[in-house]
Design a binder for these strands. Structure first.
Length: 450
RNA sequence: CGGGGCGUAGCGCAGCCUGGUAGCGCGACGGUUUUGGGUACCGUAGGCCGGAGGUUCGAAUCCUCUCGCCCCGACCA
């Protein structure tokens, strides 16, 4: 993309409504525009990252064997009356009437609807196990939306629902989700720690929240510092293997890690003092096993091998897709702007033309831009007629992890500069070398795709 | 929902107390200049002052109502 033709309305000054760094940077980088309290337009740059994150979530869900679908944003109130949650949910649920005065609601989650889909079409244990998921906009009418996309009213969420014949199978589904979530967050350059949590309105007592440590987190968390050394890494796993998934769950949940909701001082005291930590965390996902709570209320049953009809065992699992942008920025920025992890960056690299209008420099930039594209790398070419300082400041703000600086001084020796946004280190090399180096850098990102 | 605050140009703000027909910085646009970290100078455009009603000869300014947004708290992914 040529910046002169792109739409990226960056701001030099901080908008006053933004209090936390991710909100401020998303507004300044021209990623979002607020349309109402807690409701945002996703401008091209923000939309690009949102899509990258969605893509990773889709890939990791499907790698785990989960099946994508799409349910509507608007739901009939009748379904929610069946489960009893129409009254329980309170004012957080946005209720709407259509022209026939039928009660509708903008879905805050989809347990009822997916259970309805299931009961309409599945009746035999032979169709199990089944995990359906979708990535869809949700609405929760928060009393006080804040922190930009971290706590909006409208938000994009991946929610998945497993259907299993018995408790053991459902617990395997739970473990499988835990594993897939670990992979998902790591691909985004995040460390998200599974912590024992509270069931909340979804119900169920078997649940973990995934938290990204950040000063601006909404939850207070307590953990054994050893847990931050754990990495899922590039290991292969057989998602159908109960033992393998169970082993990963045990590895990642055996050390103390709880949110304030479930924190227990007595148990925490057993952790050696030098490893005890308390911090703030941003919740970016949660997994639940809740058994037959919805299947019983809504009559979602299957006939088992013994010929008896039993309510199906369920769990649900969510990833806050739009909120992840905020979480990633909270975890990865400096005083100049965002620092995108390679896995989610909107562009793989930025090209800064230091002397726009100079024939040699322009053509070197064009050639580099074309070659990156040929090699499958998506570059943002700053071809504006701006001074170097302004271009650098923009690149730093929007956080592309790699920058190639092209100017007449270096080109005299066939050199450009490859600079890491994270470390600030610059290395001179030929344009050809820069392309090769970027291909190496992004190889793990491309290899991780499913 | 309780408490507090703010709506004046694209963004950040002043003007309001003490009514007299709107200003600054940044940005945008045009030019000169400059050219490796938001260059300097000159110029131009852009606002019925959130909305409605009222008081007044006259309202951004005073009064009433209303809408929106922000902050603290409670709540929440």
């Amino acid at each position: 993309m040529r910046l002169s033709r792109y739409f990226m309305p960056v701001l030099k000054e901080d908008p006053k409504e933004a209090q936390i760094v991710s909100h401020r940077l998303m507004l300044r980088a021209g990623m979002i525009k607020q349309q109402a309290a807690g409701i945002y337009s996703w401008l091209p740059l923000g939309f690009k990252v949102l899509n990258r994150i969605q893509q990773i979530v889709h890939e990791e869900q499907q790698r785990a064997g989960h099946i994508p679908m799409l349910m509507p944003t608007l739901q009939s109130a009748d379904l929610w009356r069946e489960s009893g949650r129409y009254d329980d949910y309170g004012d957080e649920m946005l209720r709407i009437k259509d022209r026939h005065k039928r009660d509708l609601l903008y879905g805050p989650t989809n347990e009822e609807m997916v259970t309805d889909v299931f009961r309409s079409h599945v009746s035999s244990y032979k169709d199990l196990p089944l995990t359906l998921y979708h990535i869809q906009w949700k609405f929760r009418d928060e009393m006080r939306p804040r922190f930009g996309v971290m706590r909006g009213r409208e938000f994009l969420m991946k929610d998945g629902y497993n259907f299993d014949l018995d408790r053991d199978a459902a617990l395997h589904a739970y473990n499988r989700h835990l594993v897939s979530y670990l992979r998902t967050y790591e691909r985004m350059g995040l460390q998200a720690i599974p912590m024992r949590a509270d069931g909340g309105p979804i119900g169920g007592d078997y649940t973990h929240e995934f938290l990204v440590l950040a000063e601006t987190g909404e939850s207070e968390v307590f953990y054994d510092s050893q847990i931050t050394d754990l990495k899922f890494g590039a290991r292969e796993i057989d998602y159908d293997s109960v033992a393998e998934c169970q082993a990963v769950l045990e590895e990642f949940t055996s050390r103390y890690a709880r949110t304030d909701e479930t924190h227990d001082e007595a148990i925490f005291a057993e952790v050696p003092e030098e490893r005890r930590r308390s911090a703030r965390g941003i919740e970016v996902g949660q997994i639940f096993y809740f058994g037959t709570k919805y299947s019983e209320a809504m009559g979602a049953t299957v006939v088992g091998p013994d010929g008896n009809r039993v309510p199906v065992e369920m769990g649900s699992h969510g990833i806050g897709v739009s909120r992840l942008l905020g979480a990633i920025i909270e975890a990865s920025h400096d005083d100049k702007g965002i620092i995108w992890p390679e896995g989610v960056t909107p562009f793989h690299a930025g090209i800064v033309n230091l002397k726009q209008g100079d024939v040699a420099t322009d053509s070197a930039c064009e050639a580099l831009y074309a070659e990156l594209k040929t090699q499958g790398l998506d570059a943002l070419y700053d071809d504006r007629d701006e001074r170097a300082g302004a271009k650098f400041a923009t690149m730093d703000l929007i956080g592309l992890p790699w920058r190639i600086t092209v100017g007449p001084r270096g080109l005299a020796n066939n050199k450009v500069e490859l600079t890491s946004r994270r470390s600030g280190e610059s290395v001179e090399m030929s344009p050809q070398e820069a392309v090769l180096r970027l291909k190496e850098i992004y190889k793990p990102v491309f290899d991780a795709a499913y």
